[in-house]
Nucleic acid binder design. Structure first.
Length: 359
DNA sequence: AAATCGTGGGT
DNA sequence: TACCCAAGATT
């Protein structure tokens, strides 16, 4: 039985008046005049926005586009520079895939992104959502985006009580059924803006909602309860020790993690493995190790981490342990957040230790 | 196909 | 505090 409800007209009208401004976005009035955004900007912003808030992305998008204005510039960048620029944003596989993708598009596609979902999906780091988003937003192609916002909006409009992620394909079909016959890019951004500002997970703004009259969940008084989700398992806690090695000239020893796995490709302090019980002190080099009082607590996607910090002075270290970074070159912002926390503890101790010398 | 992969903000 | 959540992709 065909579904006659359609919200695209109301949504586009609402978007014309309420579209949020973002650095990578072309506002609806300009799009109606035929202007489209730079596909490089759309791709970069969409990858950064994967599981990441607009607020967190802002600074990184500005940094990347200032430093690498075109995709060819990014393709020519050093791996270490891109990983450092991404540090703090999380999900570091995105940065590695970003570079792979930039180099492929530059080398094999003359710097131009494909315009179809099928072709975009072949590129590293571009999945179903991002392929649809680039198609619709950058090229105004007919594509239906399905992200967390769209899932929530569809679940409420149609009062879908089946829990996610099982209900995903059902919600995908409903989202597809709502597509207008033009303005695909504006429509995609309109649904996501609605989900981000009106049809939010909590503290819904139904009084401001342009499609409230068509919302079955609102009519039934269950909008705040949707979408249902299967409960997540509790996170275990893991334990480890981070080792900060300092040369007398102030240089610090850092190691680069392998490309696969947690914090892959990122610069880190040498660490023990992170296990279910307190880690035994296994110093990476023989030295006069000092245990610091404070402990780093950090939560990853699927476990909590308690990280003790130990500090030692050493003039040399085996190269397979890592490399000394001079005091001048050391930039804590190039470390992932958990390792920045380690530094914040270690640097206080170093400062406390050194200050008597200088006075 | 269920598990893995970060981080910061909101409640 | 503890949990939820964010413009998901990959294996």
């Amino acid at each position: 039985m065909p579904n006659k409800v359609n919200i695209s007209t109301e949504l586009l009208t609402w978007y014309d008046a309420h579209a949020r401004e973002m650095p990578w976005r072309v506002p609806p009035q300009a799009r109606l005049r035929g202007e489209l955004p730079d596909p490089y900007h759309v791709w970069l912003s969409e990858v950064m926005l994967q599981q990441t808030t607009v607020a967190a992305v802002g600074k990184y998008f500005h940094d990347f586009t200032t430093r690498w204005p075109r995709i060819q510039d990014l393709a020519a960048a050093q791996d270490a520079d891109v990983m450092a620029a991404w540090a703090g944003l999380g999900y570091y596989a995105r940065a590695r895939n970003l570079l792979k993708c930039a180099r492929f598009v530059t080398s094999n596609l003359n710097g131009a992104f494909p315009k179809t979902e099928r072709e975009l999906m072949k590129l590293p780091g571009i999945g179903p959502y991002t392929a649809a988003a680039i198609t619709a937003i950058a090229f105004d192609g007919r594509a239906s985006v399905l992200d967390g916002n769209v899932e929530r909006v569809m679940a409420r409009i149609f009062a879908i009580e089946n829990p996610l992620p099982g209900a995903k394909e059902e919600l995908r079909a409903l989202a597809l059924s709502q597509m207008p016959n033009s303005r695909y890019g504006d429509y995609a951004q309109a649904v996501m803006d609605l989900g981000a500002t009106i049809c939010t997970p909590r503290r819904l703004q139904c009084a401001q909602c342009p499609i409230r009259p068509k919302c079955r969940a609102h009519a039934q008084g269950i909008a705040p309860d949707l979408p249902n989700k299967t409960p997540k398992p509790k996170k275990p806690t893991r334990h480890g020790i981070a080792y900060v090695i300092r040369r007398d000239d102030g240089a610090l020893l850092l190691t680069r993690r392998p490309d696969r796995g947690l914090l892959g490709g990122m610069l880190c302090w040498p660490c023990t493995d992170w296990g279910d019980v307190d880690a035994a002190h296994r110093p990476p080099i023989s030295a006069d190790w000092q245990a610091l009082n404070a402990e780093v607590r950090h939560t990853f996607t699927h476990f909590h981490l308690h990280l003790k910090v130990m500090l030692a002075n050493a003039e040399t270290a085996p190269s397979d342990l890592g490399q000394f970074v001079t005091l001048r070159e050391f930039n804590p912002d190039a470390l992932p957040s958990v390792m920045q926390k380690v530094w914040n503890i270690a640097k206080h101790q170093i400062g406390a230790h050194n200050s008597p010398k200088e006075t």
